[in-house]
C-alpha cells in the first residue's frame, strides 16, 4: 500500500461517530436508559458492525441479535433514529456526522437492550397455517410434484419473500395500539398461501382474515411496505385480502355456514 493511501485511510479512521443505545438490563434496571458511545467512523461500516465494535472494544455487555450480516436471516432488526431497519442493511455513512440513536424494535417488549420478545409475532405466523394445504393430501410421492406455471407463481412470489424480521410490526401503529391485530407479515404470508395454485386452504384461512383482528384492524397506513427490507409489500397483501374478505362476506350473506 502506498504512503498516500495509508494517510487517506488514517484520516477516515480519525473521524468518530456518536452512537446512543437504549440499554435495558432486566436484572438491575427498572426502565431503559440511553448510553452513548464514540466509535471510529468508516463510510462502509453498517450499524451491525458498529454494534459489534462496541461489544468487542467498549462494552461487552451490550446485547443484540444477529446472524447472517446480509439481510436474509432477519435477526438484527432495530430502531435506527426511530425508524425500523435491519442493522446489517443500514450504514453509518447515511447518518454521519449526526449522532445515531439505536433502540429495540418498537411495539415489541424489550427482553434486554436491543433484543425484543417476538413470541406474539411468531404465534401469529403459526396461526395462519403457513404451509400448503393440498386439496387431497394422499398424493403419493411416486405421482410426482405439484406442478405450477411461472404465471401461477407470479401471483404470490412477492409475498413469499418475507424473512420474519418484524420491522413491519414495528412500523404498524395499529399493531402498536392493539396487539390482537394479526399484523402485516402474518397477513402477507397468509395471502402468499391463499394465492398459491397448489393450496386449497383458503376457506380455513379466510376465517382469520374476516375477523375484526384480521384485515379489518388495518387502516392502510402503508408504513409496513415502506420499511420492509425485502419488498414484500404487506399493505398490498392486506388490501387484496380486504377485497377477498368482502367477497366472502357477500357469499356468506346468501350461503351462511
Amino acid at each position: 500500500m502506498s504512503t498516500q493511501a495509508t494517510h487517506a485511510q488514517q484520516a477516515v479512521v480519525d473521524k468518530v461517530i456518536e452512537i446512543e443505545i437504549l440499554r435495558y438490563r432486566p436484572e438491575q434496571d427498572e426502565k431503559p436508559f440511553p448510553q452513548g458511545f464514540e466509535i471510529p467512523y468508516h463510510p462502509d461500516m453498517s450499524i451491525l458492525e458498529a454494534l459489534q465494535y462496541i461489544k468487542d472494544h467498549l462494552d461487552s455487555s451490550v446485547s443484540f441479535r444477529w446472524s447472517c450480516r446480509m439481510a436474509i436471516c432477519g435477526s438484527c432488526g432495530l430502531m435506527v433514529n426511530n425508524i425500523p431497519k435491519l442493522g446489517c442493511k443500514a450504514f453509518l455513512r447515511d447518518y454521519y456526522p449526526q449522532k445515531v440513536t439505536l433502540e429495540a424494535l418498537a411495539n415489541f417488549p424489550i427482553e434486554r437492550d436491543l433484543v425484543v420478545v417476538m413470541d406474539d409475532f411468531i404465534k401469529k405466523l403459526e396461526e395462519i397455517k403457513p404451509y400448503i394445504i393440498p386439496e387431497r393430501d394422499e398424493k403419493c410421492l411416486s405421482e410426482g410434484t405439484y406442478q405450477q406455471t411461472p404465471e401461477q407463481m407470479e401471483k404470490y412470489a412477492k409475498f413469499s419473500m418475507c424473512i420474519n424480521c418484524g420491522l413491519c410490526y414495528s412500523a404498524c401503529p395499529q399493531y402498536g395500539l392493539d396487539k390482537s391485530f394479526t399484523g402485516p407479515a402474518a397477513l402477507a404470508l397468509l395471502a402468499r398461501y391463499n394465492r398459491d395454485s397448489r393450496d386449497a386452504g383458503s376457506a380455513e384461512r379466510m376465517k382469520i382474515v374476516n375477523q375484526e383482528q384480521g384485515v379489518w384492524s388495518c387502516t392502510f397506513v402503508g408504513y409496513c411496505s415502506v420499511v420492509c427490507p425485502k419488498g414484500v409489500d404487506p399493505a398490498a397483501a392486506i388490501q387484496l385480502l380486504k377485497v377477498e374478505s368482502s367477497k366472502d362476506y357477500l357469499i356468506g350473506m346468501f350461503k351462511p355456514d
Binding site: 436484572e27 431503559p32 417488549p109 424489550i110 395500539l177 397506513v221 415502506v226
Partner: peptide, 21 residues
Amino acid sequence: SKRKPYRREMNNDWWLKNIFY
C-alpha cells in the same frame, strides 16, 4: 429467571413523532 420484559407505552401523540405518520 431474571426475565422482566419491558413494555414501552405508545403515547397518543405517536403520529407527531414520524413524518410518515
